[in-house]
Design a protein around this nucleic acid. Structure first.
Length: 600
RNA sequence: GGCCCCAUCGUCUAGUCUGGUCCAGGACACCAGGUUUUCAUCCUGGUAACGCGGGUUCGAAUCCCGCUGGGGUCACCA
């Protein structure tokens, strides 16, 4: 909603030839030790996953650090949409907004307007930043590889290859492409390709080990037996990820590649392409992966899994959702791999009152997490600043500025990390508690505007500001802020009294609580204005006048007004419902306490 | 299964490179106390880990080997 889509700006004409020629003389090339250019290159096939957000954050931090040290530092964003079937523009849009919300700004990349400032652009003229718009560039390089005999066309169909793969698996040997296309004389190969015969292009892998000098893991060498001549251009004419990523990183001047460890085995392939093309290799750093507490992969499917379990527990067999047929619902329920669109999933979860696990950045945002807490926790998951606070504890709580000033590969762990939601919650609670009242109220209101219409309807921005000091320390997320003041959502005549609490506060012993309560109602009129401060003062004065402790008065009022023994301080509690409601509730509580039918 | 990566409290981690100052430090969670008109916050204290087996060494969480365990990857996905 704060994001303005300016994709048209990012879609300038290709100036590929000029850029291609400029490559080696570009002032910010990989050989310049004073330059750090990192990139995040998501494929727009869904929402921004929390793991992707961490990768982006660390890429951003590494470039920012260079900048802070007076060197050249740029973080660039590129959209890897070479998978025609799975990419979508709405995904791109969501990813950009999620990054912007987190405060991970990119210097180069698609241009968006977010909360009044512009992110992205093409200052260096190395765009466009959508791979689908860079096809000419890829083809130029692929042609070059074919010409220099580093790559060759191959004509087998996917089915033929699949059959061979199956055979290999049955024979329990590792499958590798058998280079059958190389049996065809080069001249004939070229002729068939020129004639338009459907084909893929494969890279001829060198027959020697390739070493990756990883900044986190150290040197990793993989032998030639582990690789076959992999495809660099698909039958549909699009490059594969491997080719596109290498060409783009080189042409965009990327110096440091930070990515998940799942890419480690891909790196030798990328180095092979770089060598064949005469590019220098960027510096690599492979980040440890993030997992669920139970060791499973943090996957979007976790949300479906949770929902399915809830449906089964509720014994629901027909679709409760409009727009989802019973047949489709049944199919979804039966098939582990089938996923529901996120809006339907959300509706379902709301109906069944289950909490879906947050997986995408958007999920955390909806659940009321603050970007600063998310960033802090994410950075700490795998990275450690190795610094001490004055009191001798380790530095763990820090902001984006600190991250940008201190992030280095040296503090990175190597092992996989489990995502601890409880610790994140603690970080978030602390981040909320640290906000000023004004800032908290602003964020709470913004959040409610997007995600909680009922809350917005009940509380004005001014109400939220008044409640801020009471709610801040009592909620872990913006979403559970409303639970703290849940009593304000109940009608005066619908309060259900907790019998035990009522007895303890009003009737126990000499029923002093009830007596105080009766006296206090008469005092209400003298409290004016009915603000938290005035109420606190009024109650304190009342206690003094009657020579009783605060507990003898506050607890009865609290129970009378909220129905239970727990609420924020009396000031906010009474102020938010107002004087009339306070009176009504106290009156009805007194009646309730004096009624002979009063149980427990 | 082949190849590759990894291994300290329940979890995230410091310490490992440059063996002794580590009967292993911090954080979250948990437990116990305290402050407070309730709750929450806050404060104090506590429980809790070097995966196993061999070496090397006067001495190993730290170095070497093996095992076990976890993960990644083996697509005309990225």
């Amino acid at each position: 909603m704060h994001l303005l889509w300016l994709s048209a700006l990012a879609r300038g004409p290709l100036r590929s030839l000029r850029r291609f020629g400029l490559l080696n003389s570009h002032p910010m090339s990989a050989s310049d030790p004073n330059t750090v250019i990192t990139r995040f290159a998501p494929s727009p096939t869904g929402h921004l996953h929390i793991g992707g957000a961490r990768t982006a954050l660390l890429c951003w931090a590494y470039a920012q650090r260079a900048l802070k040290e007076g060197r050249n530092g740029r973080f660039l964003l590129r959209i890897e949409d070479t998978d025609q079937a799975r990419s979508s523009e709405s995904s791109t849009r969501g990813i950009l907004e999620d990054l912007a919300w987190l405060g991970i700004d990119w210097a180069d990349g698609p241009t968006v307007e977010y909360n009044g400032h512009t992110i992205g652009g093409d200052e260096r003229g190395v765009g466009p930043y959508y791979q689908s718009q860079r096809l000419d560039l890829y083809n130029q390089h692929i042609d070059k590889l074919i010409e220099s005999d580093h790559a060759y066309p191959a004509f087998e169909t996917p089915e033929e290859l699949e059959a061979k793969r199956k055979e290999a698996i049955e024979a329990k040997v590792g499958y590798k492409y058998d280079r059958e296309a190389l049996q065809i004389p080069r001249e004939e190969r070229m002729k068939r390709m020129a004639a338009g015969e459907p084909h893929v292009v494969r890279l001829k892998m060198p027959d020697e080990p390739i070493a990756v000098h990883d900044q986190i893991l150290g040197d990793v060498t993989v032998g030639p037996d582990e690789f076959d001549d992999f495809i660099i251009r698909k039958r549909d004419g699009f490059p594969t990820y491997h080719l596109a990523v290498v060409v783009d990183d080189a042409l965009m001047g990327v110096t440091h590649v930070l990515r998940g460890q799942e890419h480690l085995i891909n790196t030798p392939r990328h180095i092979a392409i770089q060598q064949a093309l005469g590019f220098s290799s960027p510096t690599y750093a492979h980040l440890p992966l993030i997992f669920n507490a139970d060791g499973s992969k943090m996957s979007k499917r976790d949300k479906d899994k949770t929902a399915k379990k809830a449906v089964k527990d509720a014994n629901l067999s027909t679709s409760p959702i409009e727009g989802l047929s019973d047949a489709d619902f049944a199919k979804w329920l039966k098939d582990k791999t089938r996923q529901l669109p996120s809006d339907q999933l959300l509706t379902l979860a709301g109906m069944l009152r289950v909490h879906l696990p947050e997986i995408d950045v958007e999920d955390f945002r909806r659940a009321g997490y603050l970007p600063e807490a998310l960033n802090n926790y994410l950075a700490l998951l795998g990275w450690n600043p190795k610094a001490k606070n004055d009191d001798g504890t380790d530095v763990e709580r820090f902001d984006m500025d600190y991250l940008a000033a201190n992030y280095s590969f040296e503090g990175m762990g190597k092992g996989q990390a489990k995502f601890d939601r409880v610790k994140l919650l603690s970080f978030n609670g602390d981040a909320i508690a640290q906000l000023s009242d004004e800032e908290f109220a602003k964020r709470w209101h913004q959040w409610a505007t997007s995600y909680d219409a009922a809350l917005c309807a009940r509380f004005s921005a001014a109400d939220m500001l008044m409640l801020a000091p009471a709610v801040k320390t009592r909620c872990k997320t913006l979403a559970d802020g409303r639970d703290v003041v849940g009593f304000a959502f109940i009608a005066d005549d619908a309060i259900e009294y907790d019998g035990k609490a009522l007895h303890k506060a009003l009737l126990k012993g000499d029923a002093k609580g009830l007596e105080m309560l009766k006296l206090f109602v008469d005092e209400l009129d003298s409290i004016d204005p009915f603000t938290p401060e005035a109420i606190e003062q009024g109650v304190a004065a009342f206690c003094e006048k009657h020579e009783v402790g605060m507990g003898k008065v506050a607890q009865p009022i609290r129970v009378a007004v909220t129905g239970g023994p727990v609420s924020p301080p009396l000031g906010q509690t009474l102020a938010i419902i107002g004087k009339d409601a306070t009176r009504n509730r106290i009156d009805s509580c007194i009646r309730n306490a004096e009624s002979p039918s009063q149980a427990t």
